[in-house]
Amino acid sequence: MVKLPGIAKSLFPVLTFCWVFLSAPTTLAQSLQLEGPSSTVREGYFTVSVVAQEQREEPLTNLVIDVSTQADFSHVEQTFPALGDFRKLSLTGFSDGVYYLRARADNLAEPSNVIKVTVQHYPLWQALGLFFTGLIIFALLVVILLRSHRRVEKEAGND
């Protein structure tokens, strides 16, 4: 994999489209570099970003992300298109499992590197534990508030 020049990398988030002009004109191979979450995903959504090494002025056409449950992509389950010229995608709604992702563009022969994303939601007991803790405190608050309200209303009525 070809590493991006340091200066361009630091400016990348701000100047997505200017980096071509800033990087030194070395002879880099055309390739896509896909980056994803580094740790296990606990909420089922994550963001991936694509870094492209282009020498040409023209942008990537039809950048998409393939998602498969097999490392060799023998069966591509889903394909997500990027929005406009953006090279970052926010993906969502994944169930527990291991997913393999790669990026492709129409005008590049080779797809990107493959990244592995593990989705493991919080255990349900933990979620429900917090849920019921919250529910009890909330119920207590509502009961105290409404009973107090009725009490002061009554007192006001008696005055």
Binding site: R42, E43, G44, Q78, T92, G93, F94, S95, H121, Y122, P123, L124, Q126, A127, L128, L130, F131, T133, G134, L135, I137, F138, L141
Partner: peptide, 29 residues
């Protein structure tokens, strides 16, 4: 489409979402 491609979004027992629920309510209160 959601039930096929993004089943988690229609899950009524989505752990992370169930977990945050009351935290968000107390924040609002």
């Amino acid at each position: 489409n959601l039930s096929q491609a993004h089943p988690q979004l229609l899950d009524v027992l989505f752990p992370a979402a169930v977990m945050f629920l009351f935290n968000n309510i107390f924040f609002g209160l």
